[in-house]
Design a protein around this nucleic acid. Sequence first.
DNA 1: CGACAGATGCTTGTATACAAGTACTTCGCG
DNA 2: CGCGAAGTACTTGTATACAAGCATCTGTCG
Lengths: 236, 236
Amino acid sequence: MAQTNGRTNRRDIYLKLRQMVLTLELAPGAALSENELAASMGVSRTPVRESLILLAQEGLVQVFPKIGSFVSRVDPGQVADAQFLREAVELASLDDLPAALDPAIVGELRANLDRQRRADLGLEEFFGLDEAFHQGLMRLSGHGNVWTTVAAAKGHLDRARRLGLHENVSPAVFVAQHREIFDAITGGNVPLARTAMRTHLRAVFDDIERIRAHSPELFATDASSVPVRRNIVVWE
Amino acid sequence: MAQTNGRTNRRDIYLKLRQMVLTLELAPGAALSENELAASMGVSRTPVRESLILLAQEGLVQVFPKIGSFVSRVDPGQVADAQFLREAVELASLDDLPAALDPAIVGELRANLDRQRRADLGLEEFFGLDEAFHQGLMRLSGHGNVWTTVAAAKGHLDRARRLGLHENVSPAVFVAQHREIFDAITGGNVPLARTAMRTHLRAVFDDIERIRAHSPELFATDASSVPVRRNIVVWE
DNA sequence: CGACAGATGCTTGTATACAAGTACTTCGCG
DNA sequence: CGCGAAGTACTTGTATACAAGCATCTGTCG
């Protein structure tokens, strides 16, 4: 999302903090201190504070005046909302595919898939390729910018997915599903593409309840509950 | 969207500025000054500035460091994106309607429709009822919270709609379409509801090109062009 | 030993001062 | 009269100081 133009400390810090939250480097429930963050990053409170406000609007951080700021616990409700949103948008996008696909984007997607199939694929690498793949599909139908909105809304979903793949399987099954979707699209079979896409998106989603049972402390129960400051949630 | 809890100056100012932008009280292209706004509102730059940053992330304001802040011109690209997004979400939501509709929400929608049909309906009143109506439909299928995301993304679309109805017709035709959608849903006819909804949403959208031809200065041409500070766009 | 109260250290919200840079204006010169 | 350059007034970005409030810890009293 285009916010402030030009390079500012705020933009750098915002992107850095956002990445740390999404990659779980900053665990759900962890306490954030504007002063601490500012000191550790070598800047004043101002850019840090403004970044936290932006992250709060995205729902990734909760700010309680005079109490503290915390990384939001993964909210199952928000995960479900993001799932519904992305499914609606990505499926509708398939209906807007042009008769002649942009060869540049098709080539880009093919190269992306090739990299996904590498045996030594790391998890972070996979997430980056996955993001680019789905965004590329949206661009194929001329709705690339809408992906920005979806991406901003699916922070809780992404964190839930990371929790799942962290302790679990290889992303091989997802890579195969990506391939199916791609083949259906390039083959001009939109109904098949829709089916494959829906199956793919739900496969990710259906794993979340299992994760929640395994690590309940990372999930929110009461949306308005305030995490305790000293009780920093450690990684395990 | 849950951002900062509790009452703060920032929240008040943010909501107020947002409303002024969406209602075109602050015209597209108008220059905003943190100092002026702060003085006129009787607060310091801080809460005003933080509000502008939030509005910038929503795309309603553009901030150019060391140059100035401006109300975003209506971007036809963002209007189209919002149209696609809301259509995808609201149509998908119809597929998730439960067999037994929540009678409380149904009653609320019925009362909303009754108020829409009042002869002396003002424009601002209509927009408020329209917003509540569409959100109510989403709640009917359990996706009420997703409306928040859609609402945040459709600022440019809303401003374009306001421009259209400002110089034009009564909202009577839209009210009738709302009725059609409602009847199809309560009648259990989902396919008809989908058709009615799509027709309704596109009727709004198709009017925009006409508006753009009439008031081109309120629309963005080059997304990165900087409005001139002194050249405040007057309502005319 | 237990409970209550005050002090202390932390938090975010707000106000203000300074820094860096842009654009317009005005003054001087050819 | 035209043009150029310095100056001035504005902009946002950042740093810092102060205000208000919550939570915990500690000391004291029963």
